[in-house]
Amino acid sequence: MSENKTQAVKIEISNLKKQFGNNQVLTGFNLSIRKGESLCLIGTSGCGKSVALKCLIGLVSADSGSIKVDGHETIGQSRAENEALLRRFGMTFQFGALFDSLPIWENVTFRLRQKEKLSKKIAREIAGDIINQLGLAPHVLDLFPAELSGGMQKRAAIARAIADKPEILLFDEPTSGLDPITSGVINDLILNSVNRLGATTLTISHDMASVRQIADTVAMIHQGQIIWCGPVADMHDTGIAEVDQFVNGKAYGPLTSNPPDTNVAQHSEMPV
């Protein structure tokens, strides 16, 4: 758990709504994250966790609601303001999203090199330092993403997200698809980097072991809303059936494992 939690609110999301076609993904989403807090967002697949994260940084535009970062409203802001906002965030995506066409060192230093001219030698040194902290060997610098294992890709993606020392870190399923040992390593990495940077962290996870390890606070999303949010220690006796089922991984309960996929319609559109 992170040690730098304070009382100041860093991110305040209220009544956020988003739908794709007829698919109402967020239906009044409220979440408040304090400065330095590590919050884990849990929920069944397809319930809108990634969409919520993308709304938060303006990659997906919300239909309505309010998102405040340090008290400053971000919805409806100009493109330039949104670019400035994005510079304060570091994010990893569910499937890594490393740039296929660039070697790892260029991936890791991508944002640094947009900001200032760095010689190849210096950029490689910086990248080498960062991936070293994440337990990757130096020869990885010159490999391309496709040449890395899933676990190494996740680490490289984390390296890229933290390289520019952002204030707020967003991790979308950093441990999904990994073996428990690699997951443990990644959890440690997240905790270490977070404690070192003093960053506020929002992590999406399905993995309860990981949640117990990294979260101060847990929030569960169901049908587009947060149905429970509280300290990680309290998540086992919330008295809410959905939370109980999810946290304890029970097959039977109010949650079903296959939410209706409304995207099928998207693919049958007429080509024009």
Binding site: L59, L86, G90, F93, L98, F110, R111, Q114
Partner: peptide, 13 residues
């Protein structure tokens, strides 16, 4: 694969 979104988060249009 979200690489386009990743560009946005890395200060690149």
């Amino acid at each position: 694969t979200d690489q386009i979104d990743a560009l946005d988060t890395l200060s690149t249009r």
